[in-house]
Computed example of a mutant assay.
Amino acid sequence: MTVKLLHHTEEGPASAPALLLGPSLGTSLALWDEVAPELSAGHRVIRWDLPGHGGSAADLIRPGATVGDLAALVLELADALGVDRFAYAGVSLGGAVGLHLAVHHPERLTSLAVLCSSAHFGGAAPWRERADRVRREGLDGLAESADARWFTPGFSVPRLVRDHREADPAAYAACCDALAAFDLRDRLGAITVPTLLVAGRQDPATPPAHLREIADAVPAATLVELPGASHLAPAQCPREVLAALRAQLDGPPASGTAVRREVLGDAHVDRAQARQTPFTARFQDFISRYAWGEIWTDPTLSRRERSLITLTALVAHGHHDELALHVRAARRNGLTPEEIGAVLLQTAVYCGVPAANSAFATAQRVLAEEDADRG
């Protein structure tokens, strides 16, 4: 018998550590559009839709559902994808799912990030009233007020508002049932996984006090408050959310030598060190400390972005040996052959056709060698 799964997308290397991203009520996996591609440089990013939202079937949820039921669907998805342990980040209802997993299934999580969420959502009555209203009237009325509930004045993401309007009313109401029944305040002290809490200072739905309550109860939790952010922080403040998640997922900056090995590969670094002489030792130390220890570890740009820039610079200056090295590095940093080709095509405009022609020949050789190695 085939198990019906939550609709989902995958980005990033299949061999990278898994990261599951959960949505807020009324939205879809598009909530993470401005954040997920950057995170996929170093993670296998799996975004999922709530039942009846986005591409997920409405019959995955029933009236009277609980957050535990949603968490069970997430675990079914992870199992089907062969993911045993994973980092998890979720917004609002998606964050509640993460809290449930951390309390009841800590062995599955490597870390937890809870964004614009709560250990309780203001009591059962308002959510039961909303569920009853949606079952009677549908979602058009609520969708009209989505911007005011989700964002600060003047900000909107039309795609998310459309997703709200197009969600299945019965499934949306069942998710309201889950929020009505959710209260983990007395279990927060049992959470042992590394936990990040992100609050939007202008969030009327789950104000910063809700996240502080969790931070005070969860041992060694980290709380970040984002000025200018309301309830859907990944859509409104993606750079700030990305920085917070990177710090959570990647930990303290690695040493220059460690980053050099991660980007260029052990074989290259081992060869460089084997060739080192007293004459070149200071230069090798300079590269490790300055290029890899300061520039490549700066979180302002992702490694993926740095690969794009580096490829362009190497083409412009005709450094073909270094270009071959960094084509391999770009693949490690998550770039596809198609993206590498697009970068080289761009250099034809700004660096000249002959330079791009040589670059394409170098990149094609390297990519063919990679294919042969995999084959």
Score class of each variant (00 low, 15 high):
A247N: 14
Q248I: 09
Q248E: 15
L249K: 10
L249F: 11
L249G: 12
D250Q: 15
G251I: 13
G251W: 10
P253Q: 06
P253G: 09
P253V: 14
P253D: 04
A254Q: 11
A254G: 09
A254W: 00
A254I: 06
A254R: 14
S255G: 15
G256Q: 01
G256W: 01
G256D: 02
T257M: 09
T257S: 10
T257L: 15
T257R: 15
V259G: 05
V259Q: 11
V259H: 10
R260K: 08
R260L: 04
R261F: 06
R261E: 12
R261Y: 01
E262L: 13
V263L: 14
V263N: 08
L264D: 12
L264P: 11
G265Y: 10
G265C: 11
G265H: 02
D266P: 09
A267P: 12
H268M: 11
H268G: 09
H268K: 12
V269R: 03
V269Q: 08
D270H: 03
R271N: 11
R271C: 08
A272Q: 07
R275K: 13
Q276S: 07
Q276D: 05
Q276V: 02
T277W: 01
T277S: 12
T277I: 02
T277C: 01
P278V: 01
P278S: 08
F279H: 09
T280G: 00
T280P: 05
T280S: 06
A281C: 02
A281E: 04
A281P: 06
R282H: 09
R282N: 14
F283C: 04
Q284H: 10
Q284D: 02
F286K: 04
S288Y: 03
S288I: 02
S288W: 04
R289N: 11
R289Y: 01
R289I: 02
R289L: 13
R289P: 01
R289W: 10
Y290H: 15
Y290A: 11
Y290F: 09
Y290T: 12
A291C: 13
W292Q: 03
W292E: 01
G293W: 08
G293K: 01
E294I: 03
E294F: 09
